[in-house]
Computed example of a mutant assay.
Amino acid sequence: MITGTTRLFAILADPVGHVQAPQMINTWFEAHQIDGIFVPLHVHLDDLQTVVQGLRALHNLDGLVITMPHKTAMAALCDEVGAAARAIGSVNTVRRTPEGRLIGDMFDGHGFVAGLEGQGITPQGQRILLLGAGGAATAIALALFEAGAATLTIANRTQAKAEALQACVQAAHPGAQIEVGAPDPRGHDMVINATSLGMKPGDALPIDTALLDPTMTAVEIITKPEFTPWLDQARKLGCRTHIGRHMLQAQIDQMARFMLGHDAGA
């Protein structure tokens, strides 16, 4: 039951219709007997700073989840960020203190790997093609090498962003075998779509699916639709597929606890 003492939490996104965090975090709140409600907020990128400034003054707001396209911009709007967010340059979870300070951190990378491992997929020893070079892609790239990936190829529309991601990973993992390349899955064991392509009807495919073969694992981070067009084609070709929901599910506990600022009694 929502009352005057119920604490508020929200996800900032654009678009917002695809997000699954509200139902998952509200279920977590119920299971942990937290008097809180989590809602979606549709915020355009140009309005993000104005919205965040207003949220600072909302005294019954305790936390935010940040998703595309706001992760990188939100890092600059926080008063403090954790080590992972600092290394990556983006945040996906924010805690609001009683004084209105915003503390951000990033759980995408470890959540992504945990989601894979929860489905019996390991990055260890894998040759991986990563599509995209934004905040989520950066977190994923760093976590893949922590998990023992053999090689990583980054393919992104803007080569400068791909090169910046390459430099970031090599700074954290000096021995990492990482290169900037084309969105060509041949010679790779795993293909990860960390772009927003597939979220909207009519989006271009992030990859030429004719180049896939059944030995590859096709991985998505988009949660809705559950099977994006390229992932659906990969499934029909006989590839092992991994949907975006697993990454989110693996992060829910971490994000909820961070927003609350304690162990929630569990």
Results as ranks from 00 to 15, higher is better:
T215L: 12
L12E: 07
E146Y: 00
L12C: 11
T6N: 05
Q20S: 12
E30Q: 14
G125C: 08
D263R: 12
A87P: 00
R235E: 10
V51Y: 01
V16L: 10
E117P: 02
V16M: 06
A13H: 02
Q126M: 13
V81A: 10
A147S: 10
A85W: 07
A133C: 07
L231M: 06
A266D: 13
A84K: 12
N193V: 02
T93N: 10
G265V: 01
N26C: 12
P225Q: 01
R56C: 10
H18C: 09
N60C: 12
Q124Y: 09
A194L: 04
K71I: 05
G4D: 01
G100E: 02
A218K: 05
R240V: 10
I222C: 06
V81R: 13
I66Y: 06
M259E: 04
N193F: 05
A172F: 07
A21H: 11
C168A: 15
N193C: 09
L41D: 01
P40Q: 04
W230L: 00
V91Q: 09
T5R: 14
G175W: 05
H44S: 13
G120L: 04
C239A: 00
V65M: 14
A87T: 11
A83D: 15
A164S: 12
M24I: 11
G100A: 09
T158D: 14
Q53H: 13
D263E: 14
K161S: 14
V191N: 01
L130K: 02
G63Q: 05
L197G: 02
R240Y: 06
H70V: 08
A204V: 07
L61C: 05
D189I: 01
R127L: 04
G82K: 03
M68F: 14
Q119M: 13
R7L: 15
L58S: 11
T67L: 11
D14V: 00
D213N: 15
I103S: 00
N60S: 12
T3V: 08
M1K: 13
M1P: 14
F145W: 06
